[in-house]
């Protein structure tokens, strides 16, 4: 997986976020504050501009620029959380021209740990971790398996009671709604499969 692969991935995420913007916002309307789709769209649009403005030379540069831009532009909880995900991926893959699936899987494991630490969230809290953690487990096997695991993980958040983030304020009322963060995370991982 080379620089072009990672650029295709980020471009696919940007496109998918734009297409699913209203769906993500609707999910957030139910148990949050109705801005998840709009925030991610704004963030990845800024990423698109940043990557076009200064074309990255390595996979790590693609990932780090993406992460830094998200932290600087998105705000909310998803900015720092997604930003940290991509920054950690960038740091972990190292300064190389090609990334093996093995290295990418390890980088995702480190990114998962970093995001969990920043958000102090565990699996089962009804957050993006519920899509990311199962995907990371399958990443060594194949990107398809990882995408499926993320998708299933996001769907499995519906019956959960939120323990982190804004949905947690709803207590029992958060049950019965799919988590917007887990949904966008599944979309991010799925775009990797398609890149």
């Amino acid at each position: 997986m080379d620089t072009a692969f990672f650029l295709r991935w980020i471009a696919a995420v940007t496109e998918r976020v734009r297409a699913d913007r209203d769906h993500l916002t609707d999910l957030d309307r139910a148990i949050g504050d109705a801005d998840h789709g709009a925030n991610l769209d704004r963030g990845f649009t800024a990423v698109e501009e940043a990557l076009a403005g200064k074309p990255p030379q390595t996979p790590a540069e693609v990932l780090t620029t993406t992460g830094n831009t998200l932290i600087r532009k998105v705000g909310g909880a998803s900015g720092p959380l997604y930003g940290t995900l991509f920054r950690t991926l960038g740091r972990s893959v190292g300064d190389v021209a090609e990334v093996s699936q093995e290295v990418l899987a390890e980088a995702f494991a480190q990114a998962l740990a970093a995001v969990m630490k920043l958000g102090s969230a565990q699996e089962g809290d009804k957050t993006m971790i519920d899509a990311l953690a199962p995907a990371v487990q399958k990443m060594r096997a194949s990107l398809e398996a990882a995408a499926q695991a993320a998708h299933d993980g996001a769907r499995a958040t519906t019956p959960m009671r939120a323990r982190k983030g804004r949905a947690s304020y709803l207590g029992e009322r958060s049950i019965g709604h799919q988590d917007p963060g887990a949904t966008s995370m599944a979309l991010v991982i799925d775009a990797l499969r398609a890149a």
Binding site: D33, A34, D35, A38, N39, R42, I71, R72, K73, V74, G75, G76, A77, G79, P80
Partner: peptide, 11 residues
Amino acid sequence: PGEVFTSPVPD
């Protein structure tokens, strides 16, 4: 001030 109902960014 951030976007509507969205926290500002570290910058």
